[in-house]
Nucleic acid binder design. Structure first.
Length: 556
DNA sequence: CTCTCAATAT
DNA sequence: GATATTGAGA
């Protein structure tokens, strides 16, 4: 039965004599583990099927302090049952197979640890820790706030898993459980030993919030991610563990994306408490993709240092804003929404809804943005000057990809008076230039009405929002649904396009993104399609568009 | 007070 | 040299 704290206090020679229930269908493995455990002076009861084990537990609960249960692809369901029934007993799962979802499921169902076979002596020797933990935390079943998101993720995972019966490794889910798997999320490799949970109680891992109050305290997520509060400007605790970022305000209307934004503290506090932080680019790529839809806004502020220990809240120095592509993207969107001319720092800031960003930051960025723009389209602007934002701008789309709609002579995009040549860029020219700003990628919904590109600005279209290049034909838009649902949309318009493949933002666009694409397309029919393909037929066009993530086409 | 532009800093 | 921050004028 479960050990109580009192039991342990009176237990001489602990963990000697700890009673271990061993459930393993592999008799040789069981024998091996058993002998090791016995060497360590544990008392082992071996079972080879869970029914026996469970009945033993119910008959004589006092006979076991901890269980070690082997799970395989064949018996996992039974093992899950075991976990549920024997949840009072700290249970360590072991397996020869490395299946992330199985592991997570086990943990979610209450397993205290998941160990890959072969079990090392160290692991076995330390299993008592779970008993202790359980003994002293028995009442602490209350879920802390910080763990709720984890639990929710787990719950959804379980639903999914249970519904689907078998546990096939599912990569997509894994991203939702970063807290559990931590930085190892890339370690899908079968060989990796990474997933072996450390011999410490599970739930403590990865979710320890910044409550230790130490400069060098760190969450498991990664060090230095605590927030420093710079007076009024609130900073959320950016743990980089998406799951934990819960306290940020919910975004209003257009769900906006922010990621990869970083503001770092430049120097150290007067008291010598060094709190410099690395300008660690948030691993936004993936995460943003997965979190966008939640309207998750992460603070771009990367302050560091826990004030409680470092003392000086007065220690606020300039935070350097790193205008990452994501942030810039937001910025551009805000500017677009306001209209280039009406875009003033305060409004932009408002629209961006980025915590920690100051008006000054925005102003500065805007300054650069404008200069850049001016540089790019000096003439055009002047010519059509008086009302740069009126409809005449619609004529400014040199990007019209003739090949996108070659069969349609009367393409509405092209104003009759203005004829632009075909895009006709040489293959491979995509990535040239324009890498400076935002790495030359812009999202499908990137409105472009205010980009007065020079006709033919072509390849040099500045990254300042110019949809520099479409992905080459052979690069499908990652993650975009292949369906062409939008194709039949009644009031269709030109779709958008997926991100150029040079975007480092390789995550899969979510529905939200797609929605945006569609909305954008609908509201701005004049947007050009950046396809660089010249399909031989409409069908091919449709197919290709579909592949590129373009969901709608103009009715013709 | 906010916006811009220019100087300054990194 | 590019980019961000700070400062000053409008």
């Amino acid at each position: 039965m479960v050990c109580t704290a009192n039991d342990l206090l009176e237990w001489r020679d602990f963990p000697k004599g700890l009673k271990v229930l061993l459930l393993d269908e592999d008799s040789s493995s069981a024998a091996e583990i058993r002998s090791k455990l016995e060497e360590m002076e544990y008392i082992v009861s071996t079972f080879c099927n869970e029914d026996e084990a469970l009945s033993a537990i119910s008959d004589k609960p006092e006979s076991f302090h901890i269980a070690i249960v082997e799970v395989s692809s064949y018996n996992s369901n039974g093992r899950f049952t075991f976990l549920e029934v024997a949840k009072d007993l700290p249970t360590i799962m072991t397996s020869k197979i490395q299946c992330l979802t199985t592991m997570m499921k086990c943990i979610a169902l209450g397993a205290v640890e998941f160990l890959l076979k072969p079990l090392s002596d160290d692991k076995l020797r330390n299993i008592w820790q779970h008993v202790v933990h359980r003994a002293f935390n028995a009442e602490g079943n209350e879920l802390s706030e910080s763990l709720k998101p984890v639990k929710e993720s787990m719950v959804s995972l379980l639903h999914f898993q249970l519904e689907n019966g078998e546990q096939k490794s599912s990569i997509s889910e894994e991203t939702e459980h970063e807290t559990a798997v931590e930085e190892n999320s890339q370690g899908q490799s079968e060989e990796s030993d990474e997933y072996q949970a450390p011999p410490t109680p599970q739930l403590k891992q990865g979710v320890r919030l910044v409550d230790d109050g130490g400069c060098q305290d760190q969450t498991n997520c990664s060090s230095e991610k605590q927030s420093g509060n710079k007076f009024g400007e609130s900073k959320s605790v950016d743990t980089t563990c998406g799951i934990l970022v819960a306290e940020t305000a919910v975004e209003a209307s257009p769900p906006q994306i922010l990621g990869g934004a970083v503001i770092k503290e430049e120097d150290e506090s007067p008291d010598g408490c060094k709190i410099g932080s690395n300008n660690m680019p948030l691993r936004s790529e993936n995460k943003d993709g997965t979190n966008e839809s939640a309207g998750d806004v992460r603070s771009p502020v990367q302050a560091s240092g826990i004030h409680s220990s470092c003392g000086h809240k007065s220690n606020r120095k300039k935070m350097k804003v790193d205008w990452t592509p994501e942030l810039h993207k937001k910025f551009v969107r805000a500017v677009e929404n306001l209209g280039v001319d009406q875009a003033i720092p305060s409004r932009i800031l408002e629209l961006m809804k980025v915590e920690g960003l100051t008006r000054h930051n925005v102003a500065s960025h805007l300054q650069k943005y404008r200069m850049q723009r001016r540089h790019i389209l000096p003439k055009e602007d002047v010519k059509r000057a008086p009302h740069p934002r009126d409809l005449s701008q619609r004529n400014y789309y040199p990007h019209k990809h003739v090949m996108a709609f070659p069969p349609y002579p009367s393409n509405p995009i092209l104003p009759s008076g203005q004829v632009y040549p075909a895009w006709g860029h040489p293959p491979g020219s995509y990535l040239t230039g324009a890498q400076t700003w935002g790495h030359a990628f812009y999202p499908p919904w990137q409105p472009m009405e205010s980009w007065h590109w020079k006709p033919y600005s072509g390849m040099h279209a500045d990254a300042w929002g110019c949809p520099v290049m479409p992905p080459p034909p052979h690069v499908p838009c990652p993650g975009f649904p292949q369906n062409a649902a939008g194709f039949h949309s009644a009031n269709t318009t030109y779709g958008s396009y997926c991100m150029p493949q040079n975007s480092f933002d390789l995550h899969h666009p979510e529905e939200e993104v797609i929605d945006k694409v569609v909305n954008e397309a609908i509201s701005k029919p004049w947007l050009p399609l950046p396809l660089g393909l010249k399909p031989p037929s409409i069908d091919s066009v449709l197919t290709e568009l579909s592949k590129q993530g373009i969901s709608t086409i103009p009715p013709q």
